[in-house]
Each structure stands twice: as C-alpha cells, then as structure tokens.
Design a protein around this nucleic acid. Structure first.
Lengths: 327, 327
DNA sequence: GACTGCATTGAAATCGATACCATTTTTTGT
DNA sequence: ACAAAAAATGGTATCGATTTCAATGCAGTC
C-alpha cells in the first residue's frame, strides 16, 4: 500500500508538504491540487498506527459494558458511537459479562491502545477499587458509580426512580410490594434504597431479594417467590433483563397481570408495550446517557483539572396496565 | 508512561531483550525474571501503535453492520467479538444505517486502520459494486451477499426459510397470503423469491410489498394494507424490525391474531414469545453466524488463495399461536 | 587449552507518519 | 527597487516498538 513518501515523489514535493496537505497545514493551492491528484492516483490512505505513534494521540475511546445484548447498553453504545465518530474518534467496544477479571483485562488493553479516554459501566466490585487516576486516561462511568462525588459519571436518579415506581403502586392501591434487585452493581443497591425508603415512608415493610444479573436467575427467583404462601401482591423489578425473567415466571405460574399480581420495573424495552397488559416501567433516557457521557469525556479532556461531576438524569414513569388500580 | 527503553535500563539489559520477553523469544530464565520485575515495577504496557507500525500486523478486524440496535446484529456482533478476542484480535464496530455513503466512509477508515480483515453486512447497493479485491484486506459478508458464488459469505438459506414459512401457513389452511419485504438488502429479495416460489408452487398468487428498513415504514405499510377491502388473510414479514411494526399496526387496527389475521416472520426476538398469541418465526442461528464469519475470516487469512465459499445456514421454524390452523 | 556449536544478548535499521527548525519564495510597505 | 515580513517548502529527528544481523558467553569435545 502506498505511503507518504510515494505520494511525495509522484507529486514532486517533500513528505513534509504531503503531511501538511493531510493536516490542512499551510500549502499553496497549486501544490495542494498536485498532491491530492497523486494521492488519489495511488489510492493513498494514511497509516493510522504511524500517525498515532508520532502524534501521540489516538483519537480512540474505549467503551466497556457488561453485555451489548442488554438493550440498555445497546442503545447507549449506539449513542456513544455516533457522538464519537461525529467528533472524529473511534470506539473500541468490550463486554465484561460483569466479570471483574475481564474488566481488568480490558482496562489493561485500553492502556496498551493508549486510548484517549474510557466510558465504563463498572461492576460493583471494581467500582470501589478502581483507581481512575492511575490509569493514565480519564474515565466516565455510566449506569453504575463507585460512590457519590467520586469521579465523573452519568447515571439515572435510581433512588428517585424506584421511589416513583413504589409511589405509583401505592397510589394504585397495592400495599404488599416486593422488590427484586441485582447483586452485582451499585444500580441495584440504589434502586433498593429508593424502594425501601418509599415503603418505609408509607409505614410498610420492604421485602427484597437479590440475584445475579441473568434472565434465568430472575426467573428462578420469581418462580420461587410466587410459590410461597405469603407472596407479594405487587413486584418491583430492578431492570429490563430481570423483567423478562419475571414475566416468564409469571406466565409459567399461570398468573394474570394485574389481577393476580401487579408488576412494575425498569427499562422501556419494545416488548413491554406489546405484551398484554402493557408493563409499567421507568424509561431511561438512553440516548442522552450516551451523548452526555461522550460530552463529559470531551469536556474532561479539554480541561483535565475541572472538578469531577455527576450528571444525574431523571427517568420517566410510563404507566401501563400491569399496575392498574386495585379494584 | 513507561516505554521499553525504561524497562531495559531498569533491568540492565538491551531493548532487544525486553522485546524478546514480550514476544516469548529466547531469553534465559534469570533475565526474563529481572525484566518482568522491571515491567511490573514501572507498570509497563507496550504501545500497540508502535508495535503495529513495526510489525505490520494490526490484529484488528472491522465489523460493519447497519444498526447495532437491531437485535440480530447485536447478537451476531457479540459472537464475533467473543471469537475475535479469543483469538487475540480487536474489533472496530461501525453502523451504516443502510447508507452506502457511510459504508464507503467506514471502509475507507478500515484501510487507514490497516485492519486484518472485515466482516460486513453490505447494503444492496454496495454489495454489487464492492471490489473486495482492491480493498487490501479480506472481507466476509454476513446476512447479505452480492451474488451467489462471489466472495466469502455466511448467510441464511433465505429462500428456503421463506418457503418454509409459506408452507407452514399453507398447511395451517391459509391461502390468501401477503408478504412484506425490505427494499435495501439482498436478504429481502431472496426471501421474496422463496415466498413467490412457494406460493407459485401451490398455484396461488403472491402479493408483496417493499419498504425501507424501519419500524415506522413497516407499520405504515401494514396499516395501509390492512385498511384495503381485499386485504390478505395472513402476512409473512421479512425481518424482526418489520415484525415489530406489523404487530403495532395490527394492534392499532384492533385485529386479533390469528382470528382476523395470521402472522409469521423472521427473527426469534425475545418479545415474539411473550406477546399473546406467540409469533411464529424463523429463528436464525445468530451465534453460529458470528462464529462462522470469524472462523471464515481466519481461514482466509491463513490461506489467501483458497477458493471463495458461501456458508449457508438453515433457519429453524418456531411455530406459535399467530399461525394456528384455520377453523 | 583451543575449537566447535548452541543459546543468549546487544546494536542499529526500520515501520510511516508528524514536528520542529531552517531555508526559500512570495508578498507587502515605503 | 529594496528591505522586512509573511508564507510556503524542505530536511531531519522522532514516536516506541520489532527485526535483522553480529557478537558474546558457555559447555562439551578432543
């Protein structure tokens, strides 16, 4: 494949001049035309590895999520990628499957790539331990956070959102409300906190269960719970993946929504509006989360000294039939 | 960040020796230990840009799909990425939105990255024009193909799958069957061909409509079709995106599946089993498509001279209530 | 003790761009 | 028309690794 030297020779100029054409440096129109002609004749494309090595900036960001098949992360990724390419940056995508070891491995890889920055959905374990300063590049966390006020992050107001769901269920007349939460992310913990607070405030108990992040685990947990004699009258489910497991369990148990059991959860996935009755959910602003994360990363790169901040976005309650008023 | 020279100095050896430790070259155990100690003390990570430039191989593959939010591509991507990382390669993901210009732009980018190879879901337009030889790296196509026998590809047996759906509907007693297909990909054309062939074989007409690849377009087309006086008794829908639009249109029209209209389509997305009644679909072997594509790419890299081949995978009919027997 | 052979190690060239500095050419002002 | 300033261009070092080739050390053999 042609290199800059070939172009220079064909155009009868120095490599410096060709480089200037590439980077919009000061070049006379006449020479620029000659060089561009030579480039297209040779079908020349600059070698990004060489450029990165010399210029010391890679214009590449890492995007580390737990599983791209989770529609939440799919949507966020798409937004991040669009925004990145719009800013002339490339994206390297990695799936950790909530495995701290994989996460550490990919973070190492990011250092080797000398990425400009990383957008990360940390596992609960790593979030606490992660020394974002020592990494050598800025990190913006999404969806999960280590602790309030630490590092840059874009998150949902999880406490508020969970409380909103509880209040909605209470307003619909339900009292006996159970909650299912993830045990690997800070998100699960926060939603649980909001759930507990809202029920406590109403003077009600807040029975909760915690499961690992998989459809199967959620399905099994809900199946078991529903088989118990004093099962809850309504369920709050902490994310879209669990919601799928819950719906399967409810169908398998032959229960009818909301007659036998009310249901409300997180993530407005397409199917939640298609099943009968529709599922009441908190819709996350997925595009905005992706765009904000990218914007935040760019801002941090511009001013490495600026104080860390958390962007906290509000979810939107989408009421549907699964939580229709009691009686 | 530490570089190889720093490691060499700290360990008291030459850079060549450090490089050999990195690449598992011949180094005595004593020296290797010293070098590794120096590496971890300095928290050294090799610079991939430098390595790629010198070694002339990037161990990076490009994955170009129309939209990662399409669950089919999401699943395929995940399989490709797992397989790639397992083989020590990185993946650059790009979304074309079925736009040939974007596709051309990303293909250019792939050349600049000097990728080892590309896995591509081409738009119909590009598929014909694409000169995969001139690109400088091997290309494996997925989901869509330019023409039989040209280039490497992993595809579904689209004709057969569409015919299978038609036969299933015929066996269930439906005669008046319409089909909705995409107008931008070869996939739509092939499924249409299978649809026509199966209906012709039964001596029946094969009314078909073609739409651009979006939920909205499909919803509008189905809404319009269902409002016509001689609307079909059953619909075959060419992919999961359209299926979503079709279901929305059917719900909006207040029609009941399969009583008023039977429905069968492509892509076994989670929600197709959750809605009532379940949707009859062709399930694509998404993991296998991703893995095969990656395997094919690796095989091609190993032997650039081997003859081109198409891997044609069979879909699996998943019959559900939406195509329950008539009467 | 000299010699051969093998396993290690080091020195220097190289990958393909950009950056910096020096030089040449052109423009501007008087 | 000439000096000064500005613009355009060229030469060469450099980014951080791998690769190639040459040199060294050590063991075993006679």
């Amino acid at each position: 494949m042609a290199k800059i030297k070939d172009v220079a020779e064909l155009a009868g100029v120095s490599v410096s001049t060709v480089s200037r054409v590439l980077c919009n440096g000061p070049v006379s129109d006449k020479v620029r035309k000659r060089v561009e002609a030579a480039m297209s004749k040779l079908d020349y494309r600059p070698n990004l590895a060489a450029r990165r090595l010399r210029s010391q900036h890679t214009d590449t960001i890492g995007l580390i999520v737990s599983d791209i098949r989770n529609p939440f992360f799919t949507a966020v990724s798409r937004a991040v990628e669009d925004e990145a390419y719009r800013n002339g940056m490339r994206v390297i995508l990695c799936n950790t499957d909530e495995d701290p070891e994989k996460e550490a491995m990919y973070l190492k890889l990011m250092r080797e790539e000398r990425v400009t920055g990383v957008i990360l959905a940390p596992t609960r374990h790593s979030a606490a331990a992660l020394d974002t300063e020592a990494l050598g590049f800025p990190v913006v966390m999404i969806d999960r956070t280590p602790a309030q006020g630490d590092g840059d992050a874009v998150v949902l107001d999880n406490r508020r959102a969970a409380a909103q769901l509880v209040e909605h269920l209470l307003a619909a007349g339900y009292r006996d409300i159970g909650g299912l939460f993830g045990n690997t992310s800070s998100t699960g913990a926060e939603r649980h906190a909001g759930f507990v607070a809202a029920l406590n405030h109403a003077g009600l108990p807040s029975p909760a269960r915690f499961v690992p992040p998989s459809v199967e685990a959620a399905e099994a947990a809900v199946t078991a719970w529903l088989a118990e004699p004093n099962r809850p009258r309504a369920l709050l489910i902490s994310n879209g993946i669990f919601l799928l497991g819950a719906v399967r369990a409810i169908k398998a148990a032959g229960l009818c929504l909301p007659h036998d059991l009310a249901l409300a959860g997180f993530d407005n996935e397409v199917w939640t509006s298609l099943i009968d009755p529709g599922l009441t959910v908190i819709e996350q602003p997925v595009d905005e989360i992706g765009r904000s994360a990218m914007a935040m990363l760019l801002a941090r790169l511009e001013d490495p000294a600026r104080s860390h901040r958390h962007v906290v976005l509000q979810g939107k309650l989408v009421p549907r039939g699964s939580s229709a008023p009691l009686r």
